[in-house]
Computed example of a mutant assay.
Amino acid sequence: MVYVLCAPVRRGDNQLTVDLRQTREGKLALLAYSTLDRLVDCCGPEQPWTLIPTADLEKIRLDTGFEIVLLDLEIPEEHRRRAEVS
Protein backbone atom coordinates (compact mmCIF):
# COMPACT_ATOMS: atom_id res chain seq x y z
CA MET A 1 0.00 0.00 0.00
CA VAL A 2 1.12 3.54 -0.75
CA TYR A 3 -0.38 6.97 -0.13
CA VAL A 4 -0.86 8.84 -3.42
CA LEU A 5 -1.53 12.54 -3.87
CA CYS A 6 -4.89 13.56 -5.33
CA ALA A 7 -6.14 16.80 -6.80
CA PRO A 8 -8.60 18.70 -4.61
CA VAL A 9 -12.12 17.33 -4.85
CA ARG A 10 -14.68 19.77 -6.16
CA ARG A 11 -18.38 19.74 -5.41
CA GLY A 12 -20.12 17.27 -7.72
CA ASP A 13 -16.99 15.17 -8.37
CA ASN A 14 -17.61 11.47 -7.98
CA GLN A 15 -14.03 10.31 -8.61
CA LEU A 16 -10.61 11.14 -7.25
CA THR A 17 -8.05 12.52 -9.67
CA VAL A 18 -4.42 11.54 -9.15
CA ASP A 19 -2.23 14.62 -8.68
CA LEU A 20 0.71 14.26 -11.07
CA ARG A 21 3.68 16.62 -11.05
CA GLN A 22 6.20 17.45 -13.73
CA THR A 23 9.88 17.00 -12.86
CA ARG A 24 12.61 19.50 -13.79
CA GLU A 25 13.53 17.09 -16.58
CA GLY A 26 9.99 17.27 -17.96
CA LYS A 27 8.86 13.80 -16.89
CA LEU A 28 5.37 13.22 -15.54
CA ALA A 29 5.69 11.87 -11.99
CA LEU A 30 3.36 10.16 -9.55
CA LEU A 31 4.24 11.06 -5.98
CA ALA A 32 3.75 8.21 -3.51
CA TYR A 33 4.40 8.07 0.22
CA SER A 34 5.21 5.12 2.45
CA THR A 35 3.28 6.42 5.48
CA LEU A 36 0.64 9.06 6.14
CA ASP A 37 2.97 10.84 8.57
CA ARG A 38 5.59 11.07 5.84
CA LEU A 39 3.04 12.47 3.37
CA VAL A 40 1.94 15.18 5.80
CA ASP A 41 5.57 16.05 6.65
CA CYS A 42 6.52 16.26 2.96
CA CYS A 43 3.36 17.79 1.47
CA GLY A 44 1.55 19.59 4.29
CA PRO A 45 -1.70 18.80 6.08
CA GLU A 46 -3.97 20.20 3.35
CA GLN A 47 -2.82 17.84 0.58
CA PRO A 48 -5.61 15.46 -0.50
CA TRP A 49 -4.55 11.81 -0.73
CA THR A 50 -5.77 8.27 -1.20
CA LEU A 51 -4.37 4.90 -0.11
CA ILE A 52 -3.90 2.38 -2.91
CA PRO A 53 -2.36 -1.08 -3.28
CA THR A 54 1.00 -0.98 -5.06
CA ALA A 55 -0.42 -3.55 -7.50
CA ASP A 56 -2.73 -0.77 -8.82
CA LEU A 57 0.17 1.50 -9.83
CA GLU A 58 0.36 -0.07 -13.29
CA LYS A 59 -3.35 0.59 -13.93
CA ILE A 60 -2.88 4.20 -12.83
CA ARG A 61 0.14 4.48 -15.13
CA LEU A 62 -1.91 3.22 -18.07
CA ASP A 63 -4.78 5.61 -17.21
CA THR A 64 -2.65 8.72 -16.61
CA GLY A 65 0.58 8.20 -18.52
CA PHE A 66 2.94 8.97 -15.63
CA GLU A 67 6.55 8.07 -16.37
CA ILE A 68 8.11 7.69 -12.94
CA VAL A 69 7.13 7.17 -9.31
CA LEU A 70 8.83 9.39 -6.74
CA LEU A 71 8.69 7.98 -3.22
CA ASP A 72 8.59 10.18 -0.10
CA LEU A 73 9.60 13.33 -1.99
CA GLU A 74 9.38 16.60 -0.07
CA ILE A 75 7.38 19.27 -1.89
CA PRO A 76 8.71 22.80 -1.32
CA GLU A 77 6.35 25.02 0.68
CA GLU A 78 5.56 27.24 -2.30
CA HIS A 79 4.31 24.25 -4.36
CA ARG A 80 2.13 22.64 -1.69
CA ARG A 81 -1.67 22.51 -1.86
CA ARG A 82 -3.51 25.07 0.23
CA ALA A 83 -7.07 25.02 1.52
CA GLU A 84 -9.45 26.49 -1.02
CA VAL A 85 -11.34 29.56 0.12
CA SER A 86 -15.11 29.28 -0.40
Rank of each mutant, 00 (worst) to 15 (best):
M1I: 08
V2A: 13
V2G: 07
L5C: 15
C6P: 13
C6M: 15
P8S: 07
P8L: 10
P8T: 07
V9Y: 14
R10V: 01
R11S: 12
R11H: 10
R11V: 02
G12Y: 07
D13L: 08
D13G: 02
N14G: 09
N14F: 15
Q15A: 11
L16W: 11
L16T: 07
L16K: 14
T17L: 10
T17Y: 12
V18L: 15
V18D: 11
L20M: 04
L20Q: 03
R21D: 06
R21H: 10
Q22P: 02
T23F: 03
T23K: 07
R24E: 14
R24F: 10
G26K: 03
L28V: 04
L28Q: 06
L28W: 02
L30P: 01
L30Y: 01
L31E: 06
A32E: 06
Y33L: 05
S34M: 03
S34G: 15
T35W: 03
T35P: 10
L36H: 15
D37Y: 04
D37C: 02
D37F: 04
L39E: 02
L39W: 01
V40F: 11
V40E: 05
D41V: 08
C43A: 15
C43V: 04
C43P: 01
G44Q: 08
G44A: 01
G44S: 04
P45L: 13
P45G: 14
P45K: 15
E46L: 01
Q47R: 11
Q47E: 05
Q47L: 09
P48L: 06
W49T: 05
W49G: 12
T50K: 14
T50V: 15
I52W: 12
P53L: 11
T54Q: 14
T54G: 10
A55N: 09
L57Y: 07
E58P: 00
K59G: 09
K59W: 10
K59D: 15
I60H: 13
I60K: 06
R61H: 05
R61E: 11
R61Q: 14
L62P: 04
L62I: 13
D63L: 13
T64W: 09
T64V: 11
T64F: 14
T64S: 11
G65A: 03
F66T: 04
F66V: 05
F66C: 05
I68N: 01
I68G: 03
L70P: 07
L70I: 13
L70M: 15
L70F: 09
L70A: 14
L71E: 13
L71A: 11
D72E: 09
L73K: 13
L73W: 08
E74F: 07
I75N: 08
I75T: 10
I75H: 06
E78Y: 00
H79M: 09
H79G: 09
R80I: 01
R80T: 03
R80K: 11
R81Y: 07
R81P: 05
R82Y: 00
A83C: 00
A83T: 07
E84C: 00
E84S: 00
V85N: 00
V85T: 01
V85P: 00
V85H: 00
S86G: 00
S86Q: 00
